[in-house]
Design a protein around this nucleic acid. Structure first.
Lengths: 374, 374
DNA sequence: TTGTATGCGTTATCAC
DNA sequence: GTGATAACGCATACAA
């Protein structure tokens, strides 16, 4: 722990002391020009700035943060799968998480924050997130990263936004999408437009609030409209994955029990798994069974048959989450707290409707994101 | 700047002093059990741990970082486009940047680092990245974020990895993909297998090293094989975007000049723009003109015609970049420095070959990334 | 307008 | 084994 204190040999990376010495001022003055504080003589400022340039001085982040108590960092925790467990769909797609991150980064930037990413392996909800708390001004936690109980506890100790969760926990702030409205719309469409009555619901992991919410909303609406839904417990429970849904469906098909008219899935990847299983069994959607998803991942549009689904604004979820969190952190009075983002029914071919768009439609705007190598 | 120093009123977030007091030990001891340093009596340790639990103590990141000089943070700077300038293609794709981020996060986690994300608006290469330097132990800079000159300068002041760049700058470490090999393979295929002789090369932004490298490699190989390539300056220069390539191609078509047998593009999005323009003009690929891309974005596989292209391992690029950076930071002797990742020719329909795979093929592994809502 | 002195919460180096 | 205590680099209240 060598001392540079006050002496400032220009050994390693230069400190504020080195700049001060070089410019013949005190460190306080240097700090002032760097933070455009107070009044300084123009000549002094120039001298300092020059020294900064000459020494290539860059303020030490941690020191600054420690001193000011402000980190200008937002932590984002999300579920990361074991790398070897990604299906082609999941590897290919612009995944939900990726979109959220992109939206969050964008918003964070606008408020002058950086994003500190932490992937959490499912189940291992140990202390990764708690540690984040010490490194960031506030934390955004994606659903399933933490049990709701721990979310509530953490929220007391740190500004926290729960993203895409059930919306139930009284955690400081909840930002989520309108699952209910989306599933109601799909139920409406399938019953009223297509005249289906017998449904199955392919659920994600049983413990997942999102899955539960979607199933309940769908089931309730279908019943209200006079149809019936095989409960997911009876052979339609999966694990959110394409592969899981594939296996489940294959098993169900080989069981010989009569198939429903439509299989409604809690996510797009699962819907693709279902489609695949049907195809393997010589059945075709939507001719033999209708299939729908939830998310509107990019491939949904390009699949064959194109997937009827519910679009949720993933990227917006990220940016709104950041907005809410910044509101919490900076204690803005007018900041919105809980927010529910709208979802939208997207009708394509897999429910039996005619495919709406020609391939390539809407292809052209301007654009250059990641251009050279995406 | 209220003093808690030594006194430790358990007012706001608890500090190490609060824990020490609660456990009746010194802060040094607390620090020891938290970092599993030295030898301590089991009973003492338990007492401390209990206090930690009771107080919900979380170490203050900045303080820890300031004291130890280690941040355990990797900065990642990438180009972020103006939000409204993404075309459908670019929004759809698992974008290059997203994939890199995902790979980087994964690797960072393995080494115990977090990822600090910073999007940089193109052109505004001001000091965002320099500031990053102060917040992280090292920095990964994606191509085009910084002029090569500044990359070199920065590299002297901080561990730095240049990702997907030209490979030319003597920056500490370069991690990139094998553009040359990929373009050679495509040249080989088009000339030897299809017998083409007259080519055009659709370049990205003229200043882009990736584009230049690809064009040079392709041109050289074609000439070697006895063919010829219209230089991109003669009407085939675009700006990496789908829209740009579309316009360029349309203009070229209406000029009445004879078309080449094959149009080889520096990226997939541009290839899709070319295909679109051909279609609009009543031409069809590969019947009238063959078209190829570079990247293998997800849509490439689902397009009609499916796109012959060169696959580059985007996600791996991120993880390898992190590995290299950690090697630099921790000064590992056996760490590899510069690395060139392999590319792979992917033959599909747009070059005139029969479409190889049934849709959905290779769909199934297991998988759950972002499952519930991707 | 500028300088001095102190504290931010840890880690690590000494002694005991 | 454990306890004082000096850095770490910066921001800022208080003087000047």
């Amino acid at each position: 722990m060598p001392a540079s204190g006050g002496g400032g040999q220009s050994s390693g990376t230069p400190t504020i002391y080195d700049v001060a010495k070089q410019a013949n001022v005190s460190i306080a003055t240097v700090s002032r020009v760097l933070n455009s504080h107070g009044y300084l003589r123009a000549e002094t400022r120039d001298r300092v700035l020059q020294a900064v340039r000459e020494l290539h001085f860059v303020p030490n982040g941690p020191a600054r943060q420690l001193s000011s108590g402000i980190k200008k960092v937002i932590g984002l925790a999300f579920i990361r799968p074991p790398e070897d467990e990604m299906s082609a769909v999941e590897e290919d797609s612009l995944l939900f998480t990726d979109a959220v991150i992109r939206g969050a980064e964008f918003a964070a930037q606008r408020f002058g924050y950086s994003l500190l990413l932490t992937g959490v392996t499912e189940g291992d909800s140990s202390n990764d997130v708690t540690a984040l708390t010490g490194k960031a001004d506030g934390v955004i936690v994606l659903d399933r990263v933490l049990p709701e109980k721990r979310v509530a506890t953490l929220a007391k100790r740190s500004p926290l936004v729960l993203l895409a969760g059930s919306g139930k926990p009284q955690a400081a702030v909840n930002v989520r999408v309108d699952n209910v409205q989306g599933m109601q719309a799909i139920a409406q469409h399938l019953v009223a437009h297509h005249g289906f009555r017998r449904f199955a619901f392919m659920a994600g992991k049983e413990s997942s609030p999102d899955s539960t919410t979607r199933e309940e909303a769908f089931t309730e609406m279908v019943r209200f409209l006079g149809g019936q839904v095989e409960p997911s417990e009876e052979g339609w429970s999966s694990d959110w994955t394409t592969a899981g849904a594939f296996k489940t469906t294959r098993d169900r098909l080989s069981s010989g029990r009569p198939m429903p008219e439509a299989i409604v899935c809690a996510s797009d990847p699962m819907a693709l798994g279902v489609l695949q299983a049907l195809q393997d069994a010589g059945l075709r959607a939507p001719r033999d069974v209708a299939v729908t998803g939830f998310d509107d991942i990019p491939i949904a549009r390009h699949w064959n048959p194109s997937l009827t689904t519910v679009r949720q604004p993933s990227q917006q979820l990220g940016s709104v989450g950041v907005e809410a969190l910044v509101g919490l952190i900076e204690d803005r009075p007018n900041a919105q707290r809980d927010r529910v983002l709208p979802t939208q029914l997207v009708v394509r071919a897999s429910c039996g409707c005619p495919a709406p768009t020609a391939p390539g439609l809407g292809l052209l705007n301007t654009g250059s994101w990641g251009s050279e190598s995406q």
